[in-house]
Design a protein around this nucleic acid. Structure first.
Length: 743
DNA sequence: TACCCGGAAGAAAC
DNA sequence: GGTTTCTTCCGGGT
């Protein structure tokens, strides 16, 4: 356990915290830091400046000292925990801590610890404070500049007995920079037990705010932010960037919040963390796209557990990597991004061994937890469309299984933030994946395979499959953007096949938890439309979102008319983010995604519903699309047919078509001449009405099991029949074709 | 301002 | 190296 944190040998350290604090795999970064500090203290360091940053510019080291030295009540050094952005950036933001010379003290002298936390030694003033030469050279074992530590400051209050002595004997701010940095009277302060920050913060919260931020509604988040503004004298927060509920807010990591609130993010984050730490979770958080299923409190607990474990694991890996890099082989891969270590194979030198002190599999995850985590990975990290029972009632109302309005609203509020946090979660999930792999490796000697519980991951999964499954989220491990998000289409009800994947449903049946390895899902015997696609193609991605049986993505995209293929993108930005995650293009936005959608116009996969924003229509059902070998074939066939039709038109009814049709000079592809002339405005004035006229036929068409090759973009010859949908082809498509032909 | 459109160039995967 | 499927950027229109 010790070595997990500090990288030293097990003999050197002692499990002093065994019974006092949470097991290390749930520690957050700061917990590990505190532990290390404690270790440091135990090793006889005076600790006077051990935790002061080695350089004011080492921005990643910005959490420690003020945590270790809670200020006396009444030292209203508000904003002192602008340790990162503010301290180094907006120096006026009270970064001088207790002296608070930066800005006027709007907040009267009162003791909320958040504002009272003294600043970092050496921060704010731009001082460079060397590590104590007398102390254990922790920097060698734990290169501080590489650690970014989520602020979890309450640990000292959680374990005051231990750390009061620690902090009193190691006045972190007592270093050279402490005097000006404002850490007054630490010793005197620590002589008396500091009160819990929660006890101080919570009473100051607006009464309307519940104790658990995760249960806050959007308005509560706004209230909280405004309170933060007032309480901590923050520069104006852009509340528009916090249009989310409490759960979504809690999903944001520090950098996420900092992005939204430059100069204040740390404070907001810290305040939130303080509230979060002991907040009683009520389990009534509405589902979000990342936590789509009706979660129990236990699941939520496991999720936070998982994230904490991943965070700890991440730090452990960093430490391990750093310590090993000082040795021989680690090529200094530079984990500045905080994630590169995740790219290394799971069976690398970091594979846990008892000698290395890595956490064993059992330490990291119990069997049961492991299962749950795996499930949660599926549910939270990826946009996995887990195969819940189809709720389609066949009425065409795609909202049949949608959440309640309240839930949708809350979920929609959470969606944006959740997606913004997606990368963050991905990061942790990757760490979890590695932990998982390590656990698997460690468990390899065990005769028991713990993946045999009902409702859990498939017990038949091999490790490699598991690795494939989870590590597919790692873009660097799989250079190809091979479906970082595994979209698993839902099982189909008899009437739900309109836009669903037959193959996926096949997989669903045998793998209701969507843990089927990619190798299987990607067409290993599958005959589905997503074979080889699996959400990698945009249309497939949209289909799978749309066909989620639980309608978990209805706040991103939802059917307007399932039978006719008309759908509306209800959250363009959110959907684009989802797509970007799916394709590992973080900068994806709706503009770019819509460009990709527009490319579908020319091949009649999609068209725009005129007059309605973000409203599109599938012109081909998935079975058709599946049958299309590739778009090129479709394009060529359609071009050929169009050419034939054009010839016919010219020779027979030259006067029948208006000249406007040929007016499109923008033909990017010569083979697409006719397709390029597709004009939604002329072809579909009221597509919904048009298509609703014959929805069943459309559905039936989708259900028919005709030879895909026969359905492969054959251009109809009888346009009138086609328009009526008689020949079994997509009437909507054919109507478009007809118009194209006519034009 | 946001949405929508489509050309152009290029990337990435196959 | 060719093709496909976007991605990215852009100018223009509504």
């Amino acid at each position: 356990m010790i070595s997990i944190l500090c990288g030293c040998s097990a003999d050197e350290c002692h499990p002093i915290f065994d019974d006092e604090i949470s097991p290390p795999y749930v520690w957050r970064h700061f917990d590990a830091y505190v532990f290390l500090l404690f270790k440091k203290n135990q090793n006889g360091s005076n600790g006077s400046s051990l935790w002061t940053p080695t350089s004011a510019a080492s921005s990643s080291v910005h959490h420690q000292p003020f945590i270790l030295a809670p200020p006396p009540a009444g030292t209203a050094s508000h904003g002192s925990n602008h340790h990162h952005n503010n301290s180094l950036g907006s120096g006026s933001n009270n970064t001088n801590g207790g002296t608070s010379t930066g800005s006027p003290m709007k907040v009267p002298v009162k003791p909320p610890p958040l504002k009272s936390l003294p600043p970092l030694s050496g921060y704010g003033g731009g001082q460079t404070v060397p590590l104590s030469p007398s102390g254990l050279n922790m920097a060698d074992r734990l290169p501080l500049p590489h650690l970014t530590l989520p602020f979890s400051p309450d640990i000292l209050w959680r374990y005051p007995t231990q750390f009061s002595a620690l902090t009193s004997s190691s006045p972190a701010s007592g270093g050279p920079g402490s005097g000006s940095a404002g850490h007054p009277q630490h010793h005197s302060h620590h002589s008396q037990q500091p009160s819990s920050p929660h006890l101080d913060v919570k009473p100051h919260l607006p009464g309307a705010l519940g104790p658990d931020p995760r249960t806050w509604a959007r308005e509560d988040v706004v209230t909280f932010l405004r309170w933060c503004e007032r309480e901590f004298d923050l520069p104006g927060l852009d509340l528009d960037k916090f249009q989310m509920n409490g759960k979504a807010l809690c999903l944001l990591n520090k950098s996420d919040i900092a992005e939204r609130a430059p100069g204040s993010g740390d404070v907001v984050h810290n305040a939130l963390q303080l509230l979060l730490r002991d907040a009683p979770y009520t389990g009534r958080v509405p589902s979000s796209p990342l936590t789509p299923h009706p979660h129990t409190a236990h699941q939520q607990h496991l999720l936070s557990h998982a994230l904490a474990a991943a965070a700890a694991h991440q730090q452990q890996q960093q430490q391990q990597q750093n310590s090993s890099s000082s040795g021989s082989n680690s090529g200094g891969s530079g984990n500045n991004g905080g994630g590169s270590h995740l790219l290394s194979p799971p069976n690398s030198a970091r594979t846990p061994t008892s000698a290395s002190g890595w956490p064993s599999a059992n330490q990291l995850f119990s069997s049961a937890d492991f299962h749950s985590l795996g499930h949660l990975i599926q549910q939270t990290n990826s946009v996995t469309l887990s195969p819940a029972p189809s709720v389609s009632d066949g009425s065409g109302n795609s909202q049949g299984g949608s959440p309640s309005h309240a839930e949708q609203s809350a979920a929609a509020a959470a969606a944006a933030a959740a997606m913004a946090a997606q990368a963050h979660i991905n990061f942790y999930t990757q760490a979890l994946a590695q932990a998982h792999n390590q656990a698997q490796a460690a468990a390899a000697n065990s005769a028991h395979h713990h993946h045999n519980q009902a409702g859990s991951n498939s017990g038949s999964q091999s490790d490699s499959e598991e690795n494939d499954s989870v590590q597919d989220n790692s873009p660097a491990r799989s250079p190809a953007p091979s479906t970082p998000i595994h979209l698993v289409p839902p099982p189909m009800s008899p009437l739900a096949t309109t836009f669903s994947s037959a193959a996926s449903s096949k997989n669903m049946e045998k793998d209701p938890l969507a843990t089927t390895p990619i190798s299987e899902r990607n067409g290993g015997g599958g005959d589905g439309l997503d074979s080889g696609s699996n959400g990698r193609l945009l249309w497939d991605f949209l289909q799978q979102l749309l066909n989620d049986p639980s309608q978990r993505y209805s706040h991103y995209i939802a059917w307007k008319n399932r039978e006719t293929g008309v759908f509306k993108i209800t959250d363009p930005a959110g959907l684009a983010r989802l797509w970007g995650i799916q394709k590992n293009h973080p900068s994806m936005n709706y503009d770019k995604m819509s460009r990709a959608l527009r490319y579908y116009y020319r091949v009649n996969i999609l068209r725009k519903v005129q007059g309605e924003r973000h409203c599109y229509q599938f012109l081909r059902n998935p079975i058709e699309l599946k049958s299309i070998k590739n778009i090129s074939l479709l394009r060529h066939q359609m071009a050929a047919a169009a050419a034939a039709a054009a010839t016919t038109t010219t020779t027979t009814t030259a006067s029948g078509s208006s000249g406007s049709s040929a007016s499109s000079g923008k033909m990017a592809d010569s083979t697409d001449a006719s397709l390029e002339r597709y004009s939604p405005s002329s072809s579909c004035n009221a597509p919904d009405q048009d298509f609703e006229a014959e929805p069943r036929r459309f559905a039936n068409n989708n259900n028919n099991e005709q030879d895909p090759e026969d359905n492969d973009c054959d251009m109809p010859t009888d346009l009138s029949m086609e328009r009526r949908g008689i020949n079994g082809t997509n009437p909507y498509l054919t109507s478009i074709k007809t118009e194209n032909m006519a034009s």
